[in-house]
Simulated assay, not measured.
Amino acid sequence: MADVEGALPIAARRDLRNSLAGTHDPFIQAIPKVELHVHIEGLITPELRWKFSQRNGMTLTHPRTGSVFRTLEELQESTEDGMKPAHGGRQDNAEETLSFFESYYGGFEVLKTKQDYYDLAMYYFERAARMNVRYAEVFFDPQGHTRTGVGWEVMMGGFGEAQREAEKRLHVKSAWIMCFLRDLPPESAMQHYLAALPYRGMIVGIGLDSNEVDRPPVLFEEVFARARADGFRITAHCDVGKSYPLEHIHQTATAIGGTGADRIDHGLNAASSPETVEMIREKGIGMTVCPWSYIRHQPLDEVFKRIRTLFDAGIKMAIASDDPAFMEDTWISENLRVVRKYCKFTDEEMVKLARDAVEMSWAPEGVKKEILDEIDTTGYFL
């Protein structure tokens, strides 16, 4: 797909991120937050990848050239170069998507031990605590880990230890959302679902991510129906700016799990269809929105116009991080800053976003009440 006129190239995104970082916004820093869309694998920076590979005695190679990375600096430079067009000028959508998936899935290979999984999860929880995240639902892709030979007890053991420590030491509560890779067969999704059942105390929901082309949500209806019957909550990613999103949004909202999902991840194209917007609103489906993900491929003005349209229509949404390591180190705070700037949200509307994220979360009711009370009783906000 060709680059979209008005989408921000990487240099412009970095400039925007730096300008937002230089603007002190005590309101956004202080407000209690709930994070509902962050991929644990999307946190694997070149630094973490190097750390884990060195600890595990691994050699890292360039995915296209096969050349060996001898230093962290070489890996960092390659990561930078991978986000630049080989032909000069601006990198188009297809090029950047390829670079993204190469880097993203390449990071899985360095995770080998329970300590690796613990360290990765704690990297998130410690950053979340500094941003006043009180509760998080974290995505993970088990198929990407088991195909590198990692066992469930290693993966979930590390995640579980970090989850417990984060609640005790950092006061960040959390749960996990297990996502299936939609470019793999539905049979693989079912196998991994069954293997995950011993860890259902950690896992609150079932999701669907990865490359969406020709992979509609209904392909996975059997596993979603099983998950619904077993009491899990359901969500699915719906791409932004492609040719198929409205149909995938409709399937997600109405079909999967028998009655449709509890949430939609991304799905910004719904704003172009008043009927779809009204259907989502009537069903009370929340949407997780990650603005920094969209301005890579969509005109900036159009992205924030759609977000504003959905918000004004009364749809609950949660602003979130997505994949900070691959998106200019932008986290929930930066995403809140950019949506505040371009949607022109007032303080009161930012409070509504904070409350909506709590209400559409799958946290226990007691946890929700605790966070809502903190928002409502902090005089700074009101």
Rank of each mutant, 00 (worst) to 15 (best):
Y117V: 13
D119W: 05
D119A: 13
D119S: 14
L120P: 12
L120Y: 06
A121K: 08
M122L: 08
M122Y: 14
Y124R: 02
F125L: 08
F125R: 08
R127T: 07
R127W: 01
A128H: 10
A129L: 01
A129K: 10
R130D: 12
R130C: 04
N132Q: 15
V133R: 09
A136Q: 05
V138G: 00
V138M: 01
V138Q: 01
F139M: 10
F139G: 09
D141Y: 05
P142K: 08
H145F: 10
T146S: 10
T146G: 00
R147D: 11
R147A: 07
T148K: 13
T148S: 02
T148I: 09
T148W: 10
G149T: 00
V150A: 13
G151A: 13
G151K: 14
W152P: 12
E153L: 08
E153P: 06
E153H: 15
V154L: 06
G158E: 02
G158I: 10
F159A: 01
F159H: 02
F159T: 00
G160D: 06
E161M: 13
E161G: 05
A166T: 07
E167K: 15
K168R: 14
K168Q: 15
R169Q: 11
R169I: 04
H171D: 14
H171S: 15
H171C: 04
V172L: 15
V172N: 14
K173W: 14
K173D: 15
A175K: 09
W176F: 15
I177V: 15
I177A: 09
M178C: 13
C179R: 11
C179P: 11
F180K: 10
F180V: 08
F180A: 11
L181K: 14
L181A: 15
L181E: 15
L184I: 03
P185Q: 03
P185K: 10
P185W: 07
P186F: 11
P186A: 07
P186N: 08
E187A: 11
A189F: 03
M190K: 14
Q191G: 05
Q191H: 05
Q191L: 13
H192M: 10
H192E: 15
Y193K: 08
L194G: 07
L194I: 12
A195C: 08
A195Y: 09
A196C: 14
L197N: 03
P198L: 00
Y199L: 12
Y199R: 10
G201T: 01
G201V: 04
G201D: 03
G201M: 03
I203D: 00
V204L: 03
G205V: 03
G205E: 04
G205H: 01
G205F: 01
G207E: 04
G207Q: 04
G207T: 00
G207S: 04
N211R: 09
N211I: 07
E212T: 06
V213N: 07
V213F: 09
D214T: 07
P217A: 09
P217I: 12
V218G: 02
F220Q: 14
E221A: 02
E222G: 05
E222S: 06
V223Y: 08
F224L: 09
F224G: 06
R226A: 13
A227P: 09
A227S: 12
R228I: 02
D230K: 05
D230L: 01
F232S: 03
F232K: 00
R233T: 04
R233I: 00
R233Q: 04
T235G: 02
T235Q: 03
T235P: 04
A236W: 07
A236I: 06
A236T: 05
